[in-house]
Computed example of a mutant assay.
Amino acid sequence: MSTWCGPVWGNQGVKRVLVTGADGSIGRAAVDGLQAAGYDVTGLSLRYDHSSTADRPLVGDARSAEDVTAALDGVDAVLHLAAIPHPSLGTPEEVFENNVAATFNVLAQAGQQRIERVVIASSINAFGVPMNVNDVEPAYYPLDEEVEADIADAYSLSKSVDEQSARMAWRRWGINVIALRFPLVKNREELFKFAARAENDPSVMAREGWAYLDLRDGVRAIIAALESTAAGAHVLGLAADDILIDRKTDELLREYAPTVPLRRAVQGRDSLVDTTRARELLGFRPRYSIHDQAVSAITT
């Protein structure tokens, strides 16, 4: 499907990046990070509830060919984050149609403008099990990009289709696309809140392997993907090197996923997401852990 060109850190001639969903939590951090890294940024959002550091903030709809075409003026690469980020935030029809239409439109307009690099936000939920309404478990741990899918909600389905759209864009327009499967991505303060809730009931995150990623690492992964020279369409799983809650991984598995096969031994709080592909393709490794002074932060 694609060719690996090796990990490269450098802007590859990219000067201006279009960020859709620029007013979302990841979008704002990405805009800030790209600006700090020396890129010019065009932001596209349905509205702006927060101030934006993008030097060209635009109001528009990622589903609109006209809006996206205008936003692509002078752009060298695209970061597509615009989406309804949870199945509870709309009807199934709204969530699926919005997410799939936005991703396809952004890829199609980028293809017609001969943009060579697009990074899209996929999700750990693209394989369907974490949000599944049925009593199902992952086929194995650690989770990787090839884990068997079992999808029963519109959001997870939309992310799976987005990954297929990325493959289509590569075949149709020759766009190099990297789909990043984000787990729970929050800033450090918000991660502590999620960790406290998960400590009370670890079962709620068992099907996603208690995975998380510090927002700062999320931005680093985005920039690495935008700067990559890898050809083709790629899906990359991301996560911190450890799990969200302060317990040993093997103990949690014995208690909450005793029948799920474990493909490699784990020690301490080892992550249950295999990030080998991101490491090999992008040279990306997470830097941040919630467990640096986690105990005092959660209790204060």
Rank of each mutant, 00 (worst) to 15 (best):
P258D: 03
N11I: 13
E251A: 14
D217C: 08
A240N: 05
G10R: 04
R277P: 02
R167Y: 05
G174H: 06
F192W: 12
E97F: 08
R263A: 09
I124K: 10
R47N: 10
R279F: 05
N187Q: 08
Y212I: 08
T275R: 07
N98V: 14
L281K: 01
V235H: 07
L236Q: 08
R263K: 14
A36H: 07
L238E: 03
I175W: 01
S64H: 03
L180D: 13
D73E: 15
V41H: 07
L44Y: 01
E163L: 09
F104T: 11
L215D: 02
A22N: 09
L18H: 03
V59A: 06
Y155T: 03
S271P: 07
G27A: 15
T53D: 11
N11G: 10
V8Y: 00
S123Y: 01
P130G: 11
F127C: 14
Q112I: 08
E163N: 15
A82L: 06
L44I: 00
D150F: 08
L107C: 03
E148A: 14
P130A: 12
V8T: 10
G268W: 02
T276G: 14
D201N: 12
G21C: 06
K186D: 11
L244I: 11
S158H: 01
N187W: 02
N132M: 06
L143H: 06
K193V: 07
D201P: 00
D49V: 11
D270W: 05
D292F: 05
V204S: 08
R16Q: 13
A166C: 03
L191I: 05
D61L: 04
R216S: 10
I115W: 14
A230M: 11
A121K: 01
D201S: 12
L213K: 00
Y39E: 07
A240T: 03
V260A: 05
A169I: 04
V161D: 04
G74K: 04
G13Y: 00
G60C: 00
I120T: 14
G111Q: 04
S160I: 02
Q164L: 10
N132Y: 04
A62F: 00
A224N: 12
A37M: 08
D150V: 06
G283K: 01
L72Y: 06
Y48H: 01
L281P: 00
V260E: 05
G174A: 08
L252V: 07
P286V: 05
A102P: 02
L44E: 01
M131C: 10
T20H: 04
L262I: 07
L244K: 09
A224V: 15
R287P: 06
N200C: 11
K186A: 14
R171G: 15
V8L: 10
A108K: 06
N176P: 10
D201I: 10
S52H: 04
A206V: 09
H234D: 05
E251S: 09
M168G: 12
L79Q: 08
D73N: 13
E145D: 11
S271L: 06
V41L: 06
L44H: 07
I223P: 09
S122L: 07
A154F: 02
L215Y: 02
D217I: 03
I223H: 02
I124T: 11
Y39F: 11
A179R: 09
V41E: 01
Y155A: 00
W170A: 15
A71G: 05
E199C: 11
A224H: 14
A297D: 10
W173G: 14
